[in-house]
Structure formats: structure tokens, C-alpha cells
Simulated scan of single mutants.
Amino acid sequence: MLIRVDDLERIQSGAVDTAFRRWTRPTVKAGGTLTTAIGMLAIDAVDTMFAEGLSLADARRAGFDDVAGLMAWLDSGKAGTLYRIRLHYLGEDPRIGLRESADDLEAVEAALAKLDARGAWTERVLRLIESHPGRLAQLLADEMGLEKLKFKGKVRQLKALGLTESLDIGYRLSRRGEALLARRRTIASA
């Protein structure tokens, strides 16, 4: 579920606690979380709605002045079933703390081994990002011989372990990612 940065800031401040989307099927579920540019959001409820049932209170909780504004925004997007998502700001993205920590690299190695179980790729992606920080994802994907979306999915898995950081363009290794590769180099040279 994509949310614009200005809407995220209003969710973080508590001014907005509702979002509306048209989907063929929901991409979030009640009780789940969503990692965003401002941190973690908690998904409190996901309910199907009929456009005729939208109220002024619904529109305002979603940051719109009126129902007409909400409907105009919804009509400019995808077709599908209308969903009302209740959410709130949960806190900072936990990956930020991981990125700065070089602790427990054995657990990271174990997690990487699981990712590599069906074909080794993690070290190659880490070394590629290390060699080319800030390079377009498409160029990195081409170098790996992967489609861009598949490559980005792999980077997200590394990011979840605190090993990489997204930049405006491309990626870079986090402190943790650098420490992991340095550890591997030390072990390899011993």
C-alpha cells in the first residue's frame, strides 16, 4: 500500500487515521503492519465499503475536506472494491537500528544462508551494492541478469536484515552490511 509522504506525516501526527483504496483484493490486513518512509504503521481494520456509504467524517479522517474530494481522488485511481483502512503510527522503522548495529553477525549469516538455500545470491548483491552505491536499480538488476522488480525484492530482503539502505537513487551498504562483508573478508583471508 503506497501512501504519499504528506499523508504519512499527517498519520504520524494523528491528524489522519483512515485511508481508502480500491483493490481487487486488499494488500494489507487488520492486525498487520506497514513499513513506510516515516516508520511503521499499524493496520487496525480493513473494511469493504460502498461509495454511497461514505460520510463527511470518513472523508475528514482520511484528510479530505469533503466526500466529493475523496471520491474525485478515488475515481482517479484503479477500479476495484472500495476498502476503508484504519491505521495509526506505530513507531520508527526497526531496520534503522539494525543498520547501525554490527552485533550478532552470526544470526545475520544464518538468515543469509536461508535466503541462499535455493540458489546463492546474497553475497553477489551485497558486493554489487558495495561497488556501486547510488547506482540505478535497473543497472544493478541488468548486471545481475534479473528483472528490476525481482532484484528490488532481493534488496528488500537484505534491507529487512539491516544490511542495506535505500537512497534517492539506488542503494548503499549500511554499517551492518559493511561489517558483515569485512568479517567475511577476514575469514576468507585467514
Rank of each mutant, 00 (worst) to 15 (best):
L2W: 12
E165L: 05
L173N: 02
L161R: 00
R86A: 15
S101Q: 06
G14N: 13
L167S: 00
K154N: 12
A68M: 12
I96V: 15
E106K: 11
D103Y: 02
P94E: 03
E52C: 12
M1W: 11
R4I: 08
F151Q: 07
V46T: 08
D104A: 14
S174V: 01
R61Q: 14
L41I: 01
Y83I: 09
D103P: 06
R84A: 15
A62E: 08
L112V: 11
I3T: 01
T122W: 00
Q157T: 05
T27A: 09
S166D: 11
L139E: 05
M49Y: 13
A59C: 07
P133G: 01
R10V: 04
A113H: 10
D116L: 09
R86F: 10
G80V: 07
L41R: 03
D17T: 14
D6A: 14
R22H: 11
R21C: 08
A120P: 04
A107C: 06
R21G: 02
K148C: 04
L146D: 10
L82T: 13
T186S: 14
V28P: 07
G119K: 08
T33V: 11
I96F: 11
E9H: 13
L161K: 04
D17P: 03
R61K: 13
L41T: 08
L82D: 13
R184M: 06
G91V: 09
L70E: 03
K154V: 00
T48A: 11
L163E: 03
Y171T: 00
L74M: 02
L74K: 02
F151D: 06
M40Y: 05
F50V: 13
M49P: 10
A45L: 08
D7R: 14
E147P: 02
T27Y: 07
G97P: 00
P94L: 09
D65E: 13
Y89V: 02
K154E: 02
T35G: 12
P94V: 10
G145S: 02
R185T: 00
E106M: 03
R4T: 13
L163V: 02
V46N: 03
L173S: 06
R135S: 03
D116H: 09
L181G: 01
L158S: 06
R60Y: 07
D142C: 04
L180E: 01
Y171K: 01
M40F: 00
V67G: 09
V16Y: 12
D116C: 11
A141L: 00
G119R: 03
S55A: 08
A42V: 08
D58H: 15
R184H: 01
E123M: 03
R22N: 09
K159Q: 14
E123P: 04
E147N: 05
Y171N: 05
G14I: 13
A59K: 01
E109C: 10
E178D: 04
S166Q: 12
R4D: 15
F20V: 07
G63Q: 04
R86M: 11
M49S: 09
